[in-house]
């Protein structure tokens, strides 16, 4: 996959539109999901800005992990966006996700125990920001711990630890959602932030410049 990607990168740098299309299709879903965790409903706008910059800066890409390069751009755009909104880069927590999860789980019990992508992402977004970012970069974008650490400006070990904690927290969360056995022995894991998601999510009243 990575080999395919780098071939496509070279072709796109040479001006091949199909190669660029392939890059977009390969990377955009992960970027959008990651951005949704960072900026919520504005993710599509930020993703557009991200692709704008990718298009511009593509000739200057000199090798390395292309995925990490694009996701770094996306993250910078997201941080700029949040700064514009004068908001702290807190992850959005749609309360609706938990409600969805409950119904999801109900159907899941009867059906083949699947949960939807939307719900899964919303659940990950309830994690503390560091853990959520680590899980998303590792599992959804597909970076290894080292690359994810470079994107986040942290050590690979710190990324591993954060992702590990995040997954444990998710496990507890999933367990609590299931009305199954008497297994609510949540040991030591602080509850995720659930409240005030709707208030944090400011509506885009005024258009951001840009």
């Amino acid at each position: 996959m990575t080999a395919d990607l780098s071939a496509a990168v070279s072709a796109a740098q040479a001006g091949d539109e199909d190669a660029f299309r392939l890059l977009y299709r390969s990377l955009q879903p992960g970027l959008l999901r990651y951005l949704t965790a960072l900026v919520g409903a504005d993710a599509e706008d930020v993703a557009s800005e991200t692709w704008l910059q990718i298009s511009r800066d593509l000739p200057g890409f000199t090798g390395g992990e292309f995925r990490a390069w694009t996701v770094t751009i996306a993250r910078n755009r997201a941080m700029d966006h949040l700064r514009r909104l004068r908001r702290r880069p807190s992850l959005s927590v749609p309360v609706q996700a938990l409600v969805d999860l409950a119904s999801d789980a109900d159907t899941a019990e009867r059906a083949s125990e699947t949960i939807g992508t939307e719900t899964a992402l919303a659940l990950i977004a309830t994690l503390p920001p560091r853990e959520a970012e680590a899980v998303l970069l590792r599992a959804v974008i597909g970076l290894d711990a080292g690359s994810a650490g470079r994107v986040l400006g942290r050590r690979a070990g710190a990324v591993r630890t954060a992702a590990h904690r995040g997954l444990r927290r998710l496990a507890v969360l999933l367990e609590a959602q299931r009305p199954a056995e008497s297994s609510v022995g949540v040991e030591g894991v602080p509850p995720p932030r659930t409240g005030n998601g709707s208030t944090v999510r400011a509506p885009r009243a005024e258009p951001a410049d840009g």
Binding site: R25, I115, L167, L170, A171, R178
Partner: peptide
């Protein structure tokens, strides 16, 4: 369940 959740989060493009 965590594996399922991650798989769903990384599901192919919609």
């Amino acid at each position: 369940p965590v594996a399922a959740l991650l798989a769903a989060a990384a599901a192919p493009a919609r």
